[in-house]
Design a protein around this nucleic acid. Structure first.
Lengths: 240, 240
DNA sequence: CGGGCCGCTTGATCGACATCAAGGACCGGT
DNA sequence: ACCGGTCCTTGATGTCGATCAAGCGGCCCG
């Protein structure tokens, strides 16, 4: 897990030291003096759910490390139809290098804490530090793999398989300490967001969730807290 | 199949010089001496349609530049359901850096010419030449954008919008010299492949194509050759 | 020549999911 | 307390695309 605690000790106000994100975010690739410079240009903020992090309004001139929370990347059609094309969890990196994000909006799905810095600073550091570009490539490849996995789900799975696949996805991301065979977590998305992620309607999502509940595959409290007593049962429903 | 035309007959074995792919493939980033070394390890081959380029059988130990033709990247479920998650056209780069491709098969959709070299050589050159990694990042970002665009199509468009979107996609890739408002091209995919790309059945694809034909949006000869007299009409059907 | 296969089209029917509609639970504001 | 909102669930009905089925043209091969 790459805990480089040693690099810089306490007195320097290194913003990225505070970022739990640094080991997988970009900052882990930087030298101490670069970190110090970066911290001079950084801002850390906490935003409520549904805040737009970039998109049509904010023409993405910043990068961010996600410290906590879940960010959804959505695409919208002219008539309002909408699709979530990616979910980013801490400690992912947020922002499209080298070019404005194509027609994409990033919104906080939950409360989100991010640590942001201007693109210009990072873009310059990329020139100095190849390792930085390596990190970006790694994350981009990871996102590409996830996107393609999800294309299979969108194109070929049934509604109930989609919902089960979604629950499995969330389970692996937000309940990292789950024992191997069970999980318990809070859903970071509303039914409406889940529907937009799965290419379904909220009614169908709701029906499939109650079906999973009635079949004993999951337990739901307060509409959001999900318990999966047996992950294998869920995986079977997901047709993994 | 797999007829390896021996191109290394002549005195200057600069394989990548011959690659029309080099300006966007990886090779454009290399210095002359690296190109020469790379060429010593390269093989150029032409394969028939439906040949597997990597996947379960060939555990991707090579990278390739696509010289000509179209390659489809597919994912398959245990029960046989299948989804095409990407199409690669010349001069794209084929192969997953740093890790085996996750559960993905690359197959020739048409006749394909590729120029391949062992991963080990490229991986070593990446260390020497940061620009190479930059190219890889650029291509990966492009593929990610395309994948996300397609997720919107898969999740939220109707069958007729999907088919129109597909035709537009092909038009832009295989008829680059099209005048601004019309296009003419050969479909590189069978109806069955189109269905797997769009998350539909072949019957639905066929019906939507005949509907577009009857509505005068397209003309089809020999089942494969498509003429689009007015790209705007098609774009409207695609709900772009 | 005929037979079988493949790729494609077309028609008839079915079913999964969308749509329309109503109502419950919760919550913050007045 | 009442009201308006948002979020979710549940039921009734509709429809788009899947499924089942048949047939056509091209091609290879015996």
């Amino acid at each position: 897990m790459d805990t480089r605690k040693d690099i810089h000790n306490s007195e320097v106000p290194l913003l990225c030291r505070a970022c739990e994100a640094r080991h997988r975010g970009v900052c882990g690739a930087l030298r101490p003096e670069q970190l110090i410079e970066l911290s001079k240009h950084s801002t850390r903020k906490r935003v409520g759910s549904a805040s737009e992090l970039y998109g049509e309004s904010r023409q993405g001139s910043t990068y961010s490390n996600i410290i906590a929370g879940v960010v959804k990347l959505t695409k919208m059609m002219a008539d309002g139809r909408q699709q979530i094309v990616g979910l980013q969890f801490a400690p992912d990196f947020l922002g499209r290098p080298f070019r404005a994000e194509s027609n994409l909006t990033a919104e906080a799905a939950t409360e989100v804490s991010v640590c942001s810095f201007p693109k210009s600073v990072i873009d310059r550091m990329i020139g100095e530090t190849p390792e930085l570009e390596h990190r970006l490539l790694q994350q981009t490849l990871k996102e590409l793999d996830e996107a393609r996995d999800w294309m299979l789900t969108l194109g070929r799975k049934t509604a109930s398989e989609k919902v089960a696949s979604f629950l499995l996805l969330i389970a692996t991301h937000v309940d990292p300490e789950s024992e191997l065979d069970s999980a318990e977590f809070e859903l970071p998305l509303t039914r409406s967001d889940i529907a937009d992620f799965l290419g379904l309607t909220i009614e169908t999502v709701s029906r499939q969730l109650t079906r999973l509940r009635k079949d004993g595959v999951i337990v739901i409290n307060n509409n959001r807290c999900v318990i999966v007593p047996n992950l294998d049962m869920l995986a079977q429903r997901a047709a993994i």
